[in-house]
Design a protein around this nucleic acid. Structure first.
Length: 835
RNA sequence: GUCGGGGUGGCGAAAUUGGCAGACGCGCUAUCUUGAGGAGGUAGUGCCCAAAAGGCUUGGAGGUUCAAGUCCUCUCCCCGACACCA
């Protein structure tokens, strides 16, 4: 190099990018099924390309995945590192409505901008695999998959209430409804509206979705959240026979061992008994009417007293025939369990509260310990020993559950039940900007009972009934393209905007050729993200069905090895994608059970003021500005260094300079050396060896912050003793390369005159170095308090250390003339415990 | 309320998993250098005490241990998800 030149990333970053493009540096090597090399499919959750461009939070995820991809490539794995666009969905549609444009016209510009920014950041994507979920060539297959799921009986039509904003006259997504039951945009109170909708039977896979969690290397907390979301509960449906009528009540309980403590049965206001009893009892009628009127706001209020009303009906206790009063209470929900609960005030806090209000008995039937007299002033909800429970007394709660369940089942008075919190997935949206659902409804076929189900599967009767007359399009009719239209705003009937497009609904039946009506609902945003990773992994995408199926079946890239993204997708996206993969496996289209082997969460990037970045706060940071000022490498270094990858961070412009300074020093060191070093300093090589090891280990554990700390530490040492010959000096550049791809490439080519990219180089090995570590330092404690360090020869035995310690300055005075016991842990600690 | 994640210098954090708490970075102080700079070098920097000696220190209180940021019990605070789930 000629004279020292200032580090000026803007001068070369885009040139390096051009070189990479020209030299095809990031094209994916084919992972053929015969490949002996290990694969690494590194994937960031793909973005919705908004008009606002990349957020510094995006930069964090993508850089993390990029570091992994670059590292794995360097250690010799076949790497797949793709990127694409999740462009369907509400935000895009709302933005388009605001801009008075069709989203179809807006998406390409947004994508181009995102892509420009990603390239600016030096992300090593293989753009040959890029696609958008809105490409007809992609959603053709999303539609095809929908049809396969329909044919295996996983989809059915059902009337389902949607959130409805009466003011905006539009259906709303869950996320548009605020916690207080109002619409996030207009603030009006949300009501419900019943519409026929496509429902996915995800509950059919509840057990597998729960079971297979054990196959996954995911953060513990996310696994826990998935488990709780599926919410498996084992219990008993127990029959309470009506006295003098046929109005029996069935209650689900997980605590059948408390059956002898039942003092009442409470049914939900929607329950049949409540409805029946309202006909003859004015109080009940009033109560139910009131309950139905209650808004979301009231129901939110959990400080309110439990309320209820006695129906005047009685049922009989299944084991004792005791008369049990039946109440209606709005704290019981029609949609949970059987819509009725048995009230055991002694062992359920809500029941206890209810009993206190209405003066019901509190009968303790579980004691914490055998023989213990239980004092009840709040519910005792734990297990214990059964008391006051007839022949079951003295059994443990667990034993009592088993015994009572067995006896109930024997007497036909109860049945073991497993219940799940997970509910079926509503898959219809009455919106324009989604994949059209490729189904038609044919009256003639409905009458004839024509079906097109996949013969390999048994289709439940309910599903068959619900789907009467629904016929999927043929493969040749796909894609069913979203019609281009000027008016795609939500309709005021609640139906999809597609229903208002002339000529869209009328069609012919693919089976009988008669008149048929098209489905006008579209798919939710989740649809595209349920299988996009498999699309990336297809070696050949193929336009024909056989090619497509082969592309799925023969991909040796799947499953994803590293999946990085925000914890906000802990439940929904990850659960839905897992569900699709399991269904596809049952269809024989893939041969793995789980899509994402390793999941790592990225923490949010907050603004400098510790609030969320938002235009309205005026605290946003635009990656373009940061790159213009400091270069992309600085931004990348900073975001990787600031904190552990999964922790939330607040932006700090000051700390950003730290990363910049590091790169400047690297630049200065490498561009200023004008003489060759003949022989490397062995101490420094030793340190370099350790750094190579640590950086690699840390990257593989997504501990990017400590990897960079190690790089900084080495730089400090290197600057103090700038004695590395080229073969060693290059190694340091190589291990910085995953983090700062531009500056390292520049130095690699200009200083070391290499003409193949540093990013295609092999991760450096450690050089044998002849260093005799002659002495070791052993920390010395007296009575567990650190008092100093002694230096002893390597391999020194206990006596030797003691000898040195006894005369060492700072230690001696604590030991003089004292008797002691010695704790010595070789290589770790020497502790004198005075007697 | 339930579940999950956290609490370590002025700040972001580290700690080989029970063995020298505070690596690395930011900031700050002193000093040198530069025509200037959101520049660079050197030294220092957890807290208390004028300094040394010494003592204290990982939200708080107990406990186990020769030894606790790390393990156990109780407790306080912050963030996220769900929320009357039977």
């Amino acid at each position: 190099m000629e004279d020292e030149k200032k580090y000026n990333p803007n001068e070369f970053e885009s040139k390096m990018f051009d070189l990479w493009e020209k030299e095809n540096v990031y094209s994916t090597s084919i992972q053929s099924s015969g490949s002996k090399r290990e694969k690494a499919f590194c994937l960031s959750m793909f973005p919705y390309p908004s008009g606002a461009g990349l957020h510094v939070g995006h930069v964090r995820i993508y850089t993390g995945t990029d570091v992994l991809a670059r590292y794995f490539k360097m250690i010799g794995r076949d790497v797949l590192h793709p990127m694409g666009w999740d462009a369907f969905g509400l935000p895009a549609e709302n933005a388009a409505i605001k801009a008075k444009k069709n989203p179809i016209d807006m998406v390409p510009g947004n994508i181009a901008n995102f892509k420009r920014q990603m390239n600016m950041l030096g992300l090593s994507y293989d753009w040959k695999r890029e696609f958008s979920t809105t490409d007809p060539s992609y959603y053709k297959w999303t539609q095809w998959l929908f049809i396969q799921f329909f044919k295996m009986g996983l989809l059915y039509k059902r009337n389902t209430p949607i959130h409805w904003c009466p003011k905006c006259k539009t259906g709303l997504a869950e996320e548009e409804v605020l916690a207080n039951g109002t619409h996030e945009r207009c603030g009006s109170e949300i009501t419900k509206k019943e519409l026929p909708q496509w429902i996915f039977r995800i509950t059919a896979y509840a057990e597998q979705l729960l079971d297979d969690l054990k196959l996954l290397d995911w953060p513990k907390g996310i696994l826990e959240m998935q488990k709780n979301w599926i919410g498996k509960k084992e219990g008993v449906n127990v029959q309470f026979k009506a006295e003098g009528s046929n109005l029996n009540v069935e209650c689900f309980t997980t605590r059948i061992d408390t059956l002898f403590g039942v003092v009442a049965v409470v049914v939900a206001p929607e329950h049949q008994i409540a409805v029946e009893s309202a006909k003859e009892n004015a109080d009940v009628k009033t109560y139910i009417d009131e309950a139905q009127k209650k808004s979301a706001i009231d129901r939110e209020d959990n400080t309110k007293k439990k309320t209820g009303v006695f129906t005047t009906h009685y049922v009989l206790h299944p084991l004792t025939d005791k008369k049990i009063p039946v109440w209606v209470g709005d704290y019981v929900l029609g949609s949970v369990g059987t819509g009725a609960v048995m009230v055991v005030p002694a062992h359920d806090q809500r029941d206890y509260d209810f009993a206190k209000v209405y003066g019901l008995d509190v009968i303790p039937v579980v004691a914490p310990q055998k023989g213990e007299k239980q004092v009840v002033n709040e519910a005792y909800e734990n297990d214990g020993i059964a008391i006051n429970s007839g022949k079951y007394s003295d059994l443990s709660s667990y034993e009592a559950r088993k015994a009572i369940t067995a006896d109930l089942e024997g007497g036909n008075k109860g049945k073991k039940m497993i219940s799940y919190h997970l509910r079926d997935w509503i898959f219809s949206r009455q919106r324009y900007w989604g994949e059209p659902i490729p189904m038609v409804h044919c009256e003639q076929c409905a009458k004839k009972g024509t079906t097109v189900y996949n013969k390999k599967f048994t289709i439940p009767d309910e599903v068959q009934t619900a789907n009467k007359g629904w016929i999927p399009l043929t493969d040749k009719q796909l894609p069913l393209e979203l019609p281009y239209t000027a008016s795609y705003e939500p309709t005021d009937t609640g139906e999809s905007p597609l229903s208002a497009i002339p000529g869209f609904t009328e069609t012919t039946c693919p089976v009988c050729g008669g008149k048929a009506q098209r489905e006008t609902d579209t798919m939710p945003n989740w649809a595209g993200s349920c299988w996009y990773f498999m699309r990336f992994a297809q070696e050949k995408r193929g336009e024909t069905l056989p090619e497509f199926m082969q592309g799925l079946q023969n991909s040796s890239w799947m499953p994803v090895d590293w999946y990085l993204g925000g914890a906000e997708h802990a439940v929904l996206h990850l659960l839905y994608a897992r569900f699709w993969v399991k269904a596809l496996r049952d269809l024989g289209l893939v041969n793995y059970a789980e899509p994402f082997l390793r999941l790592r969460n990225v923490g949010m990037v907050l603004a400098e003021d510790h609030r969320k970045m938002s235009k309205s706060w005026g605290n946003t940071i635009n990656p373009d500005d940061v790159v213009a000022q400091y270069g992309a490498d600085t931004l990348r270094m900073y975001e990787m260094f600031m904190a552990p990858f999964n922790m939330e961070i607040a932006w700090s412009t000051a700390a950003l300079q730290g990363g910049h300074r590091f790169l400047k020093r690297v630049w200065a060191l490498y561009t200023s050396q004008n003489h060759k070093i003949e022989k490397s300093n062995p101490e420094l090589v030793n340190k370099l060896n350790k750094t190579i090891q640590k950086v690699g280990d840390d990257i593989a554990q997504t501990k990017f912050n400590t990897a960079i700390a190690a790089l900084m530490e080495f730089l400090n040492a290197y600057e103090a003793t700038p004695e590395l010959q080229d073969s060693e000096a290059k190694k340091f550049i190589q291990i910085i390369a995953p983090f700062a791809p531009f500056i390292t490439e520049k130095i690699w080519r200009d200083v070391f005159k290499e003409n193949t990219s540093v990013h295609l180089s092999t991760w450096p090995t450690q050089t044998e170095v002849d260093i005799k570590e002659t002495s070791v330092e052993v920390p010395v404690q007296v009575n567990g308090k650190f008092r100093g360090i002694v230096k002893v020869p390597v391999g020194a035995e206990q006596e030797e250390i003691v000898k040195v310690a006894l005369v060492a300055e700072g230690i001696q005075k604590y030991l003089e003339g004292k008797k002691y016991r010695l704790i010595y842990v070789k290589g770790k600690i020497c502790n004198f415990v005075l007697l």
